[in-house]
């Protein structure tokens, strides 16, 4: 009986998770011709090459920088919005809906919406700059700006989710704690630091790990906004895997990179399981 119930899920997992995972490791051991008709076994040498390649290091580095840019900022903003909207004011429901609204935006929608802001010719920001007789800023065409621009899109797109999740965490903080603290003369800031932060920390930690793992999966924004450039400034690792596999027709290299990506994500997930159990204040 149990088998019958589990079978559908297991079939799907088998076909599309377990098998391809193994096959990806296997693919990493071969060097393929551009037309896929000739493969040569090179063994773990290809993995070694990938691990040693400076392009790959660059991708990892860029992904790391990107993560550092998006996760803390995203969490801080989400927390800020959640605290703001947690107040008992009339009409706050409208604000809550507004703050959650970006959950409805997909990667494609968010990216295109930001083009309305960032484009050198039609973007709002550059229109304002032009009004002041300035030179347009090429947000997506300059290596310095490009990663920041993509990070901004990502943070904005994730705002809705982080807001909703952290708000829910906030709601679990009992109000009497705030009451007694206020009676004791604690300022708003002290109440925030001593009560809110610790009690919301499990949620924050959850958000931290989820956002980090998601940031290592970033693809759509890159594809739509920068194509990995300029000068590989936004060549995040999933994009690099995609280009290797489907543009340079190097599935072996792509597979090797994918396996490394998996190991990193695995490490992060393990971190979540450990940290959430230990460091969180359950008081």
């Amino acid at each position: 009986m149990a088998l019958m119930l589990l079978l559908p899920s297991l079939v799907v997992f088998g076909l599309f998770v377990y098998y391809p995972f193994g096959r990806t490791i296997w693919l990493g051991l071969f060097r393929t011709s551009p037309f896929g008709n000739r493969t040569t076994y090179v063994g773990f040498e290809q993995y070694a090459d990938v691990l040693a390649s400076s392009d790959f290091h660059h991708s990892l580095w860029v992904t790391l920088v990107f993560t550092v840019m998006t996760v803390p900022v995203g969490l801080a903003l989400g927390l800020g919005l959640a605290v703001l909207a947690h107040q008992r004011l009339s009409g706050v429901g409208i604000y809550r809906t507004i703050f959650s609204s970006t959950v409805a935006t997909s990667v494609a929608v968010a990216s295109l919406m930001f083009i309305a802001l960032l484009s050198p010719s039609v973007g709002l920001i550059n229109q304002i700059i032009k009004g002041f007789d300035g030179d347009p800023i090429y947000f997506l065409q300059r290596p310095g700006w490009a990663l920041i621009a993509v990070a901004a899109v990502t943070v904005w797109q994730n705002l809705g989710v982080t807001f909703i999740v952290i708000s829910a965490g906030l709601q679990s903080v009992p109000d009497d704690l705030y009451e007694s603290a206020r009676l004791d003369g604690a300022s708003a800031w002290m109440r925030f630091v001593d009560i809110t932060l610790p009690l919301v920390s499990p949620t924050l930690l959850f958000g931290f790990v989820v956002l980090t793992i998601t940031s290592f999966q970033t693809f759509g924004q890159i594809d739509l906004l920068t194509g990995g450039g300029p000068l590989d400034a936004t060549n995040l690792i999933v994009f690099s895997i995609y280009t290797e596999a489907f543009r340079n027709f190097n599935p072996g290299v792509a597979a090797a990179q994918a396996v490394v990506l998996f190991l990193i994500v695995l490490a992060l997930t393990v971190v979540q399981l450990k940290l959430v159990e230990r460091r969180v204040f359950y008081g």
């Binding site: 484009s119 050198p120 010719s121 039609v122 032009k130 347009p136 090429y138 065409q141 194509g227 450039g229």
Partner: peptide
């Protein structure tokens, strides 16, 4: 001015907008 890869016709639009 370098306007990037030109995929969005930025180099032509620059003529239109007087850049």
């Amino acid at each position: 001015t370098n306007v990037g890869n030109g995929e969005n016709a930025e180099h032509l639009i620059a003529l239109a907008t007087g850049q």
